[in-house]
Design a protein around this nucleic acid. Structure first.
Length: 400
DNA sequence: TCTGGGGTCCTAGGACCC
DNA sequence: TCTGGGGTCCTAGGACCC
């Protein structure tokens, strides 16, 4: 049986904003991080005090300010968040190499077998030592949950908040799970929760009374067995330190909807260039390009294309993206609220994810190389120029 | 009240192959 | 001439998470 920990940074963006700006955000008890009073933004994280007024993350910032007019609003301190996230991970890696970053403010650790390493210490004691080391070295307060699967560790971390440690001992998983509402289970969102409620199920206890075939009859084979396992605390228990990113994307919601095709294309080129720069910075290539639009009425649409060969140049990616946007616009030509570019089917240089020796790259008519060595050279050169002279050194890859 | 930006995973249908 | 299943890949959309 595995001994996993989930470490979760309490109100991470609030903590980072306060560390980044001790005189401003640092002194504001009522603090909203993310969005602006006028704009279309939402709250990324609200301080515990602001939550007392009903402010929540994902709530439009303007609405949160109506609930709590005294609150200070600050932007997400992106650089500080990324730096603190790395600092926390570095501390964790001193305790075990089996650390998997689950998000910017959460990490799983696999302590299975480390009792021996730490002289018979139980995971709860190890967790407390980790907690102290993290706060001393990074000034970030964390909660830590422990259990035999990822889901139990995760719920235990919720129980541990704020700033505590809570470990579910092996064998106690089902009892622990039975103390929860179905809506608290990771993976049960508002839609599934309401569906279950409609069937008379609100608590884990309600659902535990049903056997597997009954749940499957209610939810379908897949979802039924998924839930049957979840409510017993069973599920994935692997911690993979090398699980890299599977996609890279850039998207933006505009202050007001965009109507002109030229304007949209300019934004698309910019977003595509940014995503591509991130791709190369990560030493990766991509096979699939996706363009996403959210129309003025909030309808979200996407179009994607998978190429025969992986690409990494701005020219190749932006060319495909422009075609995809034209396709989306041809289908529905209304004001656009949000535009995004995503890259997936990622692989490292010479690494996994390459086509087999005799494979052809399904469905892609060969029409000459999508990307030439020259394209790649131009991309690398523009990376260098931007690094030396700043992001405005070059306007966009289209001109090259 | 009027809905961010970064992701992951699942589903379902169609193409294509065996 | 009609008719199987299974597997994989691709696309679009949606639920969900932080």
């Amino acid at each position: 049986v595995k001994r996993l920990l989930l470490l979760d940074c309490d109100q991470f963006f609030v903590q980072c904003a306060r560390l980044a700006d001790p005189e401003g955000a640092g002194k504001a008890r009522l603090l909203l991080v993310g969005g602006t009073p006028e704009g279309r933004g939402v709250v990324t994280s609200a301080s515990y005090e602001a939550r007392g007024y009903g402010c929540r993350s994902a709530m439009p910032t303007a609405q949160a300010l109506r609930l709590c007019p005294e609150a200070l609003v600050v932007p997400v301190p992106r650089e500080t968040c990324l730096r603190k996230s790395r600092e926390v991970r570095a501390v964790l890696e001193r305790f075990t190499p089996l650390v998997e970053a689950a998000s910017i403010d959460e990490a799983f650790l696999d302590l299975t077998g480390t009792e021996r390493l730490y002289g018979g210490e139980d995971p709860g004691e190890t967790a407390r030592r980790i907690q102290v080391a993290v706060v001393e070295e990074t000034r970030i307060i964390v909660s830590i949950g422990g259990g035999s699967s990822r889901i139990v560790a995760k719920l235990a971390a919720e129980r541990a908040k704020p700033g505590g440690v809570f470990v579910v001992p092996p064998g106690a998983e089902e009892t622990f799970m039975a103390e929860h509402e179905l809506g608290q289970i990771p993976g049960v969102g508002p839609v599934l929760r309401e569906r279950l409620r409609g069937m008379g199920l609100t608590s884990v206890r309600d659902a535990l009374a049903l056997d597997l075939p009954t749940l499957q009859a209610m939810l379908g084979e897949g979802r039924g067995s998924w839930l049957h396992h979840r409510i017993r605390g069973r599920g994935p228990d692997r911690v993979d330190p090398r699980s890299g990113a599977k996609s890279i994307s850039r998207e933006e919601t505009f202050p007001t909807d965009l109507h002109r095709d030229g304007e949209l294309e300019d934004e698309l080129v910019r977003l595509g260039a940014e995503a591509t720069a991130e791709l190369r910075r990560s030493g990766l290539t991509a096979r699939t390009v996706t363009v996403k639009v959210r129309d003025g009425d909030f309808r979200t649409r996407s179009a994607s294309r998978t190429l025969a060969e992986p690409v990494e140049s701005e020219r190749a990616i932006v060319t495909v993206a422009v075609e995809l946007l034209e396709r989306l616009r041809a289908r529905r030509r209304v004001g656009v609220r949000l535009l995004g570019v995503g890259l997936s089917g990622l692989s490292g240089e010479g690494g996994e994810g390459q086509l087999g020796l005799f494979e052809d790259g399904a469905g892609e008519e060969s029409q000459g190389p999508l990307e030439t060595e020259r394209d790649r050279a131009v991309s690398r050169l523009s990376d260098e120029l931007r690094e030396r002279f700043g992001p405005t050194a070059l306007r966009s890859g289209r001109l090259l």
